[in-house]
Computed example of a mutant assay.
Amino acid sequence: MAEALIDNQTFKCLICLQECNIPRQLPCFHTFCTGCLNTYINSEYVTEDNRTYFPCPVCESPCYPHNKDAPVSSWAGSFPRNQLFASSTYNETESGQTFCHGCLTDDEENVASFWCKACSEALCQPCRIAHRRSKLLSTHKVIAIAEVSKTDIRMPVSIDNTCPRHTGKKIEVYCHDHNALCCVLCVTLSHRRCTNVNSLEDNTKMFSLDVIECELGKMKDESKTIVEEDENKLTTLEDDYQKMTRNVAMMIKRAIGKLDDLLPTFSNRFRCNIPTSSRTST
């Protein structure tokens, strides 16, 4: 497990393009709202060769449930919660209080009262007691969370570097041909013909911190542009819908007016064609 610290920021679901709500991470590492993912799975899952799966909404990689006998409606909630996303969207209550970071790893939302400077973690009362009783953690400086600036609260994120396809194997290789993170078995079974495969260690040597920050900036700008374009398209579609609705209503109104104008003429002609005897008897 690799660990990193992240600042407060907003991550968006790649389906609804809104702030990620209970984010779930697929084996391909793409993350979506639990609700959005559940709706998507129920409409897009396929059964093939006695295996049921669904393609990732972004990269279309096949995603299989952890329990093949589980109902489709439960698949979304079975995927691990992405703490990198969850830390930004679930580290505070509506009143601005901070949730205990330890409890969040188990999908529990308990308000924190303490802050460990060494761990950079918010702690609730029970977690504070467990923290103090640990031999390894008992010497850490723990203060009241009220004494900590919100800008100083950064959530430690555990990044799982185990292979999602092969139990017990660690991700050690990156395949540039498929843009995929792989373990040794992945390379042996699925990437034997790939020509551009490097170890993660070699890949990290290729990039300096400045280059990474520059690329992250570009990705952020590109993502922002994509979201803005999609939002503009939605606005345009809404405007077009309203315009079409008004036009149809106007056409119906004109048609009704035309029919009302033709009614007297039609009535007069109809009366003129009735025989005199029929009119008299009437």
Rank of each mutant, 00 (worst) to 15 (best):
F99M: 03
D221T: 14
C272E: 13
A4D: 08
D240H: 10
C214N: 12
C194T: 06
C124E: 00
E213P: 03
P65I: 04
S138T: 03
W75K: 07
T10Y: 13
S78V: 08
L189K: 11
T52A: 15
L5W: 00
M244K: 15
C127Q: 06
F32I: 05
V157M: 08
P27Y: 10
K135M: 11
A255N: 12
E222M: 06
D221W: 14
E238T: 03
N50G: 08
K253L: 07
F270R: 13
W75D: 05
F85K: 07
C272Q: 14
E94I: 12
S277G: 11
D240I: 03
S149I: 07
V248Y: 04
A146G: 15
S158A: 11
P71Y: 09
A144P: 15
N179S: 11
K170A: 06
T188S: 14
I41F: 10
S277M: 15
S278F: 15
N232Y: 14
I159E: 06
P156I: 02
N38F: 06
N8G: 11
V227S: 10
S73F: 13
A130P: 11
T10I: 11
T98D: 01
L200A: 05
Q25M: 09
M250T: 09
L234F: 04
S95Y: 13
T39H: 10
R133P: 15
D49L: 11
L234G: 08
P71T: 09
V157P: 00
L104Y: 01
W115A: 06
L200M: 10
N247Y: 05
E44H: 10
E121G: 01
S120G: 00
I252E: 15
T162G: 04
R81I: 05
M1K: 13
L216T: 03
R132A: 01
T39Y: 02
H140T: 03
Y53P: 01
R279S: 00
F11P: 05
G168I: 00
M251Q: 10
V58C: 06
E238C: 07
I153D: 05
V187W: 14
L234Y: 11
L262N: 14
K68Q: 13
L84V: 01
E201M: 12
Y64M: 02
N161K: 14
R254W: 10
E19K: 12
G77I: 00
K135C: 12
Q9K: 14
E92N: 10
P164C: 03
D240P: 10
N273W: 03
R154E: 02
N161Y: 08
N21R: 14
H178M: 03
I22G: 01
P57K: 05
C20E: 08
N179T: 04
V227E: 10
V46D: 05
Q9W: 12
E222Y: 10
A180H: 08
N247S: 05
P27F: 04
R133C: 08
C175G: 02
T89H: 01
D239K: 15
S277P: 02
T34Q: 14
S95P: 05
E222V: 15
N38K: 13
I159G: 13
A249Q: 14
